[in-house]
């Protein structure tokens, strides 16, 4: 599993969404990297892409709403990072439509998805938790 307890920021609603994202990406990577016929994996790839396109919108909106609610000073910067991630997902969706769900392209997407998620949650989002604690721990 990709999820580690150190990724918790201490805000239950955000942590639960992060866990769900890690769970989905982990599941996707296991399916893509498993030995076997590539064509059988394509439904899982399509499902994950659709999930990412929908769920990240919900997650980012909830996370941004929460940041506004607590007066998080890095809100704008964080929002811009979210926007770049959505753009990355959409660019891959366009490439999949143009080039097909080839193994190479899907694996490349998997590598980006995994590293982005780890950095986003292990680094950037930790600052939300740190800010909440600085403010006296009210979440």
């Amino acid at each position: 599993m990709m999820w580690k307890e150190k990724y918790r920021i201490g805000v239950e609603a955000v942590d639960n969404q992060h866990k769900e994202l890690f769970h989905r990406v982990s599941d996707f990577l296991r399916a893509v990297q498993r030995k076997g016929d590539w064509s059988e994996k394509i439904p899982k790839v399509k499902e994950t892409l659709a999930f990412m396109q929908e769920y990240v919108i919900v997650h980012f909106r909830d996370e941004e709403d929460y940041q506004l609610q607590i007066g998080f000073p890095e809100y704008e910067e964080h929002k811009a990072v979210h926007a770049r991630f959505r753009e990355m997902i959409n660019q891959y969706a366009v490439r999949f439509a143009d080039e097909g769900f080839t193994q190479n392209l899907v694996q490349e997407f998997g590598g980006k998805l995994m590293t982005w998620l780890i950095v986003h949650v292990a680094d950037m989002d930790q600052r939300i938790g740190a800010y909440v604690r600085e403010q006296g721990g009210r979440v």
């Binding site: 490349e108 590598g111 980006k112």
Partner: peptide
């Protein structure tokens, strides 16, 4: 494979 190379690049 492409997954490993993509992750390393990132």
């Amino acid at each position: 494979d492409s997954f490993v190379v993509s992750a390393l690049g990132e």
